[in-house]
Design a binder for these strands. Sequence first.
DNA 1: TATCCAAATTGGATCGTTCAAGATGGCGAG
DNA 2: CTCGCCATCTTGAACGATCCAATTTGGATA
Lengths: 329, 329
Amino acid sequence: MAEKVTIATVARHARVSRQTVSNVLNSPHIVRQETRQRVQDAINALGYRANQAARQMRTGRSRLIAARIEPTRDGINGSVLDRFLHGLTETADAAGYRVLLYTATDHDREIATYDDLLGTYELDAFVLVGTTHGDPRTAWLADRNVPFVTFGRPWDALDAHPWVDVDGAAGTARATRHLLDAGHRRIAFLGWPVGSGVGDDRRAGWQDTLRAADVDPTGLHRETEDGIAEGERLMRDLLDAVAPTAVVCASDSLALGALQAIRGIDPPVSVIGFDDTPVAAAVGLTSVSQPLGEAAARCVDLLTGVLDDDHQTPAPVLLQPALALRHTA
Amino acid sequence: MAEKVTIATVARHARVSRQTVSNVLNSPHIVRQETRQRVQDAINALGYRANQAARQMRTGRSRLIAARIEPTRDGINGSVLDRFLHGLTETADAAGYRVLLYTATDHDREIATYDDLLGTYELDAFVLVGTTHGDPRTAWLADRNVPFVTFGRPWDALDAHPWVDVDGAAGTARATRHLLDAGHRRIAFLGWPVGSGVGDDRRAGWQDTLRAADVDPTGLHRETEDGIAEGERLMRDLLDAVAPTAVVCASDSLALGALQAIRGIDPPVSVIGFDDTPVAAAVGLTSVSQPLGEAAARCVDLLTGVLDDDHQTPAPVLLQPALALRHTA
DNA sequence: TATCCAAATTGGATCGTTCAAGATGGCGAG
DNA sequence: CTCGCCATCTTGAACGATCCAATTTGGATA
């Protein structure tokens, strides 16, 4: 194996000092054009790459971003995070950062992991996915001045940190409007229990759109934990109670359940899901589609803003979802 | 912010030298019990964590493992990798390693990424997923003596490296036997074009099991690229040509296509997919289930074997899949 | 009590990079 | 001719850990 190529090797090869090589890499403008070229040639000829560990020791920056990979719950919604992660890896890469994975089963362990990652790897930043009311994680990170971005807006007014989110209300509103345009009036909603920021937001989009169209939403919605079986049960309940002609759901899992509940009904009840998961695509379920790649890219943008430029809090980003039309609506 | 806690801080606090603290961390057995305890107490009291960058500089080891995150193709099979990744993160964590993500669109770029990751981050090892005939990646890594494991066995006899795989032939054999036991005889197979190691392996399991049961498999199989539409097309073709009463598929995508093709046929044609993806669970598709968590764990086992112990090539691991029974078979 | 040996501990060098400060050389002004 | 200045480049030190060689310590032995 060839000798290890360090900055000293390059310096010797280009007949300059180590510092000059370092300058070519970090502040090219202060090095004379001719020298710069000579150093660059040496770098290319030797295939030199700056050692990140050594660099990190001096600068305290690791160019590493941490993201959590979820313990795939029902496997349907899990894919949302996976697609986001993929986008994150690509964009971070382009910005010169790498993504480090971690897992955690609850918030306490997750915070312990932060502590560990920061202590041993000196991570530059965290990307948190899915925020809840009174999220202890954001508070912990903010207390320690650790840069982070959340994919999901803070649901408590007091938290001020950079975030990227998709406008869930706009998504369900768009879905509801689509159904109204198709002539539906009794448009129901299957959602999550009141109190989850995301769920409330999605319900509001449906409710407000119905009201704006002079349809009274009272009695047209049901709430449950997420899941296919739960969705089916609640949809049967709705069918018995109010006989809706269409339903907007807070997730594809719920929508799949609804699809099973309406099997055989004629004329068919329209169903729209949320997240445009692979399952939705596979079964032909119309669904609200989040721009996950875009969201990941904006997360990286915000982070590099915080890390490279001033340490100011950049403006949050709210993205608009689209409606992926298939044959269930 | 409090002063940074280094090994020197701990040493001062425990009234010993830096080296003794280092010994407590790396070779506890050579330190007297009493001293060890005092150092441990100091470490806990101060919340000391060894700085990975500094450690890496001396030892040349980063305790970082790289894994690739795929550009979710059809979103169905992509989830397989995601579940594997999750298992990998968990197990690596337990073994004291962290998982670094990367993406690449083709083999050449992937190799360029290896070079970069090795040069700048001094990665300890790679986990490759999905191996093909004449895979240039394994050759590149082996040439440079970079430790790696593949999830997927080497399909060319000459490659000798640690690998973990799931016995695909055993999976399709199990599926086929299940159908035979249920009284089926005309059991078809939907698979991928000849030449892909994985696809050929899965087809062989079906074929051999039929032969063993004195059923001639001739004409009972079709091959295509992966996809739902492709599966549907080929299944229609099979129905017209040989009217099978059951079909085993090389993937859940193909199986979903088959399900659409058989809609309305009575008595229903049995369908079995492969990979037990969330989509299969959602639509009630019986499918061959790979022990992905187990596979990931064994990958980490092999890697730690190579990294921590001798640099010998550990024995490969072949895991047995299970059949997730649902209502399509 | 002095001596010796092994176990436990210590101080200095080192990994590859960047930071801070110092050296060099060319050029115009006094 | 000399000085100062600017642009450019070089030198020495530091980051925080581990390795290596040297030294101290404690207990057993003579």
